[in-house]
Amino acid sequence: MHGLINRSIECFVRDIYGLDQWQQIAAASEIGFDSFEPLLVYEDELTARVLDAAALNLGKPVEIILEDLGTYLVSHPNVQSLSRLLRFGGETFTDFLHSLADIQDRARMAVPELEMPMLSLRSHIYGNFTLYCSDGYPGIGHVLVGMLRAMADEYGALVLLEHLGGKSEVEAISVQVMETRFSEGSIFKLGRADA
């Protein structure tokens, strides 16, 4: 698993639960260090150990931790760059949903060795979608649910999300867009404020 992903799990635990919790989790998972390098690639198995240790230490199921991680990645002030990058995907939440099909290409453009799951969107009537997620780390669908929920807030859309479970390595998420302009959302300008 790419260091960027491991590192985001680390930052999530640190920023939400504190440094002590992270150090305990790092020690319990016996990864042999207490901080991931974001630009190195690690064995997938390390990620599984960290997540299992996190579930045990934090007393929450892995699925909930993954969903919270997704929300954190988009909405926490310490990681604003990701929500900005995702918003380049489109002007409205629906455009953004469709842009998820390009996520592998977008990730590869930024970091060639970063492997993202393959996402495909099926549109149904009345603003209903199913997002299929394959070739990903098991449970990645839960991260997506958390991210989509936070992105809907960003766009000011009113959305119902449900992880439909997965079979044979494909996870499905139901996305119901009730209203695209439910709230103001946050304004996305192409130029960075700090540039």
Partner: peptide, 27 residues
């Protein structure tokens, strides 16, 4: 320019690659 003039995605034609270019620069 996008910074100076507060431009958004809708200020460009959807066929233009500006948004992808800006994404790439930022990433």
């Amino acid at each position: 320019a996008v910074q100076k003039f507060n431009l958004t995605i809708s200020d460009f034609a959807p066929t233009e690659l500006v948004v992808e270019m800006l994404y790439l620069v930022e990433a």
